[in-house]
Design a protein around this nucleic acid. Structure first.
Length: 263
DNA sequence: ACTACGTCCTGCGAGC
DNA sequence: TGCTCGCAGGACGTAG
């Protein structure tokens, strides 16, 4: 499940691979989630950007290709075009074929004018590692909704790029039960700090690989060895030794420490 | 307008 | 051992 750190790791590796190069040929899976990939034949890459979990490819005709990796999306150079999970590919003028693999097909590819976004990308909250993500803006955004705090994080509105793994990790580090609907300003500041810390470290560690995530070189991330909450239900809390518990919050699996994260 | 929940998709692991 | 079934989850559509 690529979240901000995984998408940023991919972006950094794609940039030198794509910049200045043109697409000579392309094809895609017939689903309209992926067919827009074919529209960029003949165009060149001018920038590889990221907003939250979205990759933005600036093209030399003034449009942008937007890719969301969904659950199992991968962007990797490919040789075998008969790979059954290959949903799109672009042959470049540098003899590299970039492939979009996506086993579960939750990802999608779109072409649009820069800033002319639709859906979640249009309403995305601030970048968590930028100066735009302040405690004040975060607190104001959190207060606007009565939804559970984890659900708010996953909505991408208070802050961009947090998914299930880093939501659990951040709530754990902040000592916040993810099912709470109200946070004090002090607790909001703790969560703000934890989100930044957790995401920054994960980027430094090249992302988290639980199953499907690999970077452009096909290599796994290293951050999974530093997770202290997500996926550790039944194991002792690193702070207090209590066994971590698993519950479901708005349909999403959630791990927490019943002692450190009081309801 | 806001919240809650179903849907998409496929591999995998638990359980019989 | 071999099969069935439910789970995993990001974003979006729909219902209330």
């Amino acid at each position: 499940m690529p979240e901000l750190p995984e998408v940023e790791s991919i972006r950094r590796q794609l940039e030198p691979l794509l910049l200045g190069h043109h697409v000579t040929e392309s094809d895609s899976h017939p689903s309209d989630k992926f067919t827009p990939a074919r529209e960029i034949v003949g165009l060149g890459f001018e920038a590889v950007l990221r907003r939250g979990k979205y990759l933005l490819f600036s093209l030399d005709n003034g449009t942008e290709m937007v890719i969301h990796l969904g659950m199992t999306g991968q962007l990797i150079p490919v040789n075998d075009l008969s790979d059954p999970y290959l949903r799109a590919w672009w042959k470049l003028d540098n003899n590299v074929t970039l492939g979009y693999r996506d086993i579960r097909r939750f990802g999608r590819i779109r072409i649009c004018l820069p800033g002319d976004y639709e859906g979640t990308l249009k309403k995305l909250g601030p970048e968590p590692l930028s100066d735009d993500f302040t405690i004040d803006s975060f607190y104001t955004s959190i207060k606007r909704s009565s939804r559970k705090i984890k659900t708010q994080l996953l909505s991408q509105l208070p802050v961009a790029g947090v998914g299930n793994i880093y939501a659990d990790e951040a709530c754990f580090h902040a000592g916040i039960y993810p099912g709470l609907r109200k946070l004090t300003r002090a607790k909001t500041a703790d969560l703000h700090h934890s989100i930044r810390q957790v995401l920054y470290s994960a980027v430094e560690n090249g992302g988290t690989t639980l199953r499907d995530y690999v970077n452009v070189e096909g290599k796994q991330g290293r951050n999974q060895q530093y997770l202290v909450c997500y996926g550790r239900d039944g194991l002792p809390c690193v702070n207090c030794g209590e066994l971590l518990r698993r519950t479901v919050i708005d349909g999403r699996g959630t791990t927490f420490c019943p002692t450190c994260q009081r309801r």
